[in-house]
Design a binder for these strands. Structure first.
Length: 498
RNA sequence: GGCGCCGUACCCAAGUGGCUAAGGGAAGGGUCUGCAAAACCCUCAUUCAGCGGUUCGAAUCCGCUCGGCGCCUCCA
């Protein structure tokens, strides 16, 4: 459909290369999702937004996209050790936040639902499916059995382990190919003398006390963390994925182990292209609760009154391949941009219904918007260069807003442009009706606001400007911003982020 | 120790061998407005952390120095 090639950095080959689906124009894409033991934070969402932008770009190119993103609802141990690690679900349940849940299953379901709400609020495309690890236990057990049969895994008194030495390609993604180095690294956390090699990882853990357990050929227990993604990816997308994505921390060990398992199972490459999003920092430092720079979507939207689309804008404003620094300044900046798109959208919609007189500059206008959109798409195809894409898109808003009036062809071109930009970047309006800050923070009745505006209009008409300003200040104190336009005064809730 | 990234104006940031170093914010000036807000227009880096090298030519390639950061079996 398009002559454009979609170029993306590939972690495996360490270079930017064209993303080429096995079936041209049909992308099979798996993106690693969160473990739902708590609310997902904005760093998690930065990674999911990378996947979202890939889906959107591919679709803008006219591709069909089979997009799968999992939800990990099993609390894997924080180590493979039988006594050292703590289960993350269990930890979540024992935390203050977790006190309200009766068990880990309820906790997982609650946070999975929250996760989907936040996903919608940030206007991410929904995947074809959001498979859960607990729904694919049978396949995970079958995969472990097969790996034992083929000599890639072995059973011990504590579980089933993948024999890393049986897979020649182990380390090809991360570069961690030195077995001795792996021993050094593994020694810190993993002390299981039942394993043949310290780098061997668990496919199944025997544990009759675990809060989530299933019956297997090896007795009661639960699956290893890496197995679920191999199994779910293959269940929905086949043995070889076109693209597999995740956060940079997943390169090793998670994706390395997925490759080892999957390729040992099928004898085929697991994914043709790998992409990883660098971590999000906040105020120049790694997010952490102790530093007080740890934000969830709801912290920003419900807590600080941020516009969800502005959060989205801020998170995608830097290329996924370099660390991104999130700050309140950045969010404020993004809020302004989102507001400008809204204004643009309003102007275009108004002009469709009431077009201005024929404008001699219409041809130039239409052409420049078309050219700008092409540049935006080009930028996205160039390894998701969002900085350039957003800059070019913003130039489009200026083209639209500087015209005093739009004739019909211009209005149509403007709406087309905004629609295309929104389809590709998701920053103009949300695909779904989701609760926004103004819905949840508003305690002021609209009728009262309208009454105040009327009061101000009367004061203005009587040239009693001090009275008019007094009304405006009163509303401003409640977070309501007035804007006088030729058609009258409008109002909106001001984002309260400061 | 291993692997990797970054350092461009007051701030964010694109550009990675050659036309005038994108874009945004802030700031200053202007249009509009009763005044604002928003929007629009104009101005705003002879220079790309520092030093040295390669080249006809470098912010872009190479080396060194300084500064900041990430990952290395909990993690998006």
């Amino acid at each position: 459909m398009s002559h454009r090639s979609f170029r993306l950095y590939d972690t495996m080959t360490r270079q930017v290369k064209e993303l080429v689906p096995a079936t041209p124009g049909h992308l099979k894409f798996y993106s690693c999702g969160p473990t739902v033991y708590s609310y997902a934070h904005i760093g998690n969402f930065r990674t999911f937004l990378t996947a979202d932008l890939i889906v959107r770009t591919a679709e803008a190119l006219g591709w069909k996209v089979d997009y799968v993103s999992n939800i990990t609802d099993v609390g894997h141990l924080t180590s493979d050790d039988q006594d050292g690690g703590e289960d993350r679900m269990e930890k979540g349940l024992k935390s203050k936040e977790g006190e309200r849940f009766a068990n880990v299953w309820d906790l997982a379901e609650f946070y999975a639902d929250c996760f989907k709400d936040d996903w919608d609020r940030l206007n991410l495309r929904r995947p074809l499916v959001w498979p859960k690890a607990t729904q694919h236990m049978r396949e995970q057990i079958a995969a472990a059995e097969k790996l034992i049969e083929t000599g890639h895994a072995y059973e011990t008194p504590t579980g089933v382990y993948y024999r890393v030495g049986s897979f020649a390609g182990y380390g090809k993604l991360s570069g961690n190919t030195d077995r001795e180095e792996l021993i050094t690294g593994a020694r810190d956390v993993v002390r299981d003398d039942n394993k043949e090699h310290p780098a061997d990882f668990a496919l199944w853990k025997k544990d009759e006390k675990h809060l989530m357990q299933w019956y297997s050929p090896w007795g009661w227990g639960f699956p290893g963390w890496h197995l679920e993604c191999s199994v779910m990816a293959m269940a929905y997308l086949g043995e070889t994925l076109d693209l597999h994505a995740g956060g940079e921390d997943l390169i090793f060990p998670h994706h390395e182990c997925e490759i080892a398992q999957s390729e040992a199972l099928t004898g085929k490459p697991f994914a043709r292209h790998w992409i990883h999003t660098r971590f999000l920092q906040v105020d120049g430092q790694k997010m952490s609760k102790s530093l007080g720079n740890f934000f969830t979507v709801r912290d920003l939207v419900d807590g600080k009154g941020a516009d969800p689309l502005a959060v989205r804008y801020a998170l995608i404003s830097q290329n996924y391949g370099v660390p991104h620094n999130f700050t309140m300044d950045l969010l404020r900046d993004a809020t302004q941009k989102i507001e400008r798109y809204r204004q643009c959208d309003e102007k275009a919609r108004k002009a469709i219904n009431q077009p201005g007189e024929a404008n001699a500059a219409a041809d130039v206008f239409v052409e420049s918007l078309r050219d700008l959109y092409d540049e935006v798409l080009d930028a996205m195809c160039d390894n998701l260069n969002t900085s350039v894409a957003l800059a070019k898109a913003l130039e489009g808003t200026r083209v639209i807003l500087r015209e005093s009036s739009l004739d019909l062809p211009m209005a149509e071109a403007a709406l087309q442009f905004l629609g295309d930009i929104n389809y590709l970047l998701g920053i103009v309006s949300s695909d779904r009706n989701v609760p926004s800050a103004s819905d949840t923070t508003s305690s002021v009745p609209e009728a009262w606001i309208e009454q105040k505006i009327q009061e101000r209009a009367e004061a203005k008409a009587a040239k009693d400007f001090s009275r008019a300003d007094q009304v405006r200040d009163e509303l401003a104190a409640l977070g309501i911003e007035l804007r006088d336009t030729p058609e009258g005064t409008t109002w909106k809730h001001r984002a309260t982020i400061l």
